[in-house]
Amino acid sequence: MVFRKMLRAFGVGGPDVETQLADPHCRPGGVLEGTVQVTGGDHAVDVEYVAIGLITRMSEENSEGDQEFHRQRLTGSFRLVPGRHHEVPFRFEVPWETPITELYGQRLNGMSMGLTTELEVARAVDKSDLDTVMVHPLPAQERILEALLRLGFRFSRADVERGRVYGVEQRLPFYQEIEFYPPAAYASAINELELTFVPTPERLQVVLEVERRSRRRPEGFGRFDVDYKTIDEVDWPTELDGWLRRAR
């Protein structure tokens, strides 16, 4: 996947950049590898740095917008002469808490994720267009999602909200909510189910929130940790069904 763009901030004849990902697919805690190639324009310039970053769409109160949440500087300063190619390989570590964007080959409605390339020349900064990144669930996340689907829940939408989740270990300043419509077996009591994953290198933290149809009862909350090593030893449809019935 390649994108190339003349850097508008530097005017006609300025440098251009080409970024290539070896594979745009990844998982939380994984890596993205590729190269950034900067080509000199009509005149020599002093490049202060080249950096890349992950950007997602985030909601906050009544607004939403694209937010960079992880970045990596690839170079220090260097001189770029006319027509010269400066190639920078990179290995970009994807944070464990990165929201997932794909499920069974389909983009989750409401989600966007991209890698942006930034170049600074003479205090003028230009960011290239986003290179789309597809973030697939970890095996442990897949087991939980599969269990909900087997129980008959239907995916509604997903979004990323600024804030912190109570009672979990969290490094990034936001969390992802994946929303589901309930099947008939739960629909009389449950209006909507919201699922949040907060992975760490050691375990997967899972938070469930039930929006009840009766406004006289408060929303139901539950959280549990999943051991990556024993994820396949648990009957997750049965476990989740038990929790959901108690939470109704």
Score class of each variant (00 low, 15 high):
residue 6 M to E: 06
residue 11 G to Y: 07
residue 14 G to T: 08
residue 17 V to A: 15
residue 18 E to K: 04
residue 20 Q to D: 07
residue 29 G to P: 08
residue 31 V to E: 12
residue 32 L to M: 06
residue 34 G to N: 08
residue 34 G to Q: 09
residue 44 A to N: 02
residue 52 I to D: 05
residue 52 I to Q: 02
residue 54 L to R: 02
residue 59 S to E: 13
residue 59 S to M: 12
residue 60 E to T: 12
residue 61 E to K: 14
residue 62 N to D: 13
residue 63 S to N: 02
residue 65 G to R: 15
residue 67 Q to I: 13
residue 70 H to V: 15
residue 78 F to G: 01
residue 79 R to C: 03
residue 80 L to I: 05
residue 92 F to Q: 07
residue 93 E to C: 09
residue 96 W to C: 00
residue 99 P to H: 09
residue 103 L to K: 10
residue 106 Q to K: 12
residue 110 G to W: 12
residue 112 S to Y: 02
residue 117 T to L: 05
residue 119 L to V: 15
residue 122 A to Y: 00
residue 123 R to H: 14
residue 125 V to H: 01
residue 128 S to A: 09
residue 131 D to A: 09
residue 132 T to D: 01
residue 137 P to R: 06
residue 146 E to Y: 09
residue 147 A to P: 03
residue 153 F to P: 04
residue 153 F to M: 05
residue 160 V to L: 07
residue 162 R to I: 10
residue 163 G to S: 04
residue 165 V to D: 01
residue 166 Y to V: 06
residue 170 Q to G: 10
residue 170 Q to I: 14
residue 171 R to V: 04
residue 174 F to K: 08
residue 177 E to I: 11
residue 177 E to W: 02
residue 179 E to S: 15
residue 180 F to V: 10
residue 180 F to T: 01
residue 182 P to A: 08
residue 182 P to V: 13
residue 186 Y to C: 02
residue 187 A to R: 15
residue 195 L to Q: 11
residue 196 T to S: 15
residue 197 F to G: 06
residue 204 L to C: 10
residue 208 L to Q: 13
residue 212 R to T: 07
residue 212 R to Y: 07
residue 220 G to K: 04
residue 221 F to T: 12
residue 221 F to R: 15
residue 223 R to G: 12
residue 227 D to I: 03
residue 227 D to N: 14
residue 230 T to W: 02
residue 231 I to D: 03
residue 247 A to G: 06
residue 248 R to D: 01
residue 248 R to S: 13
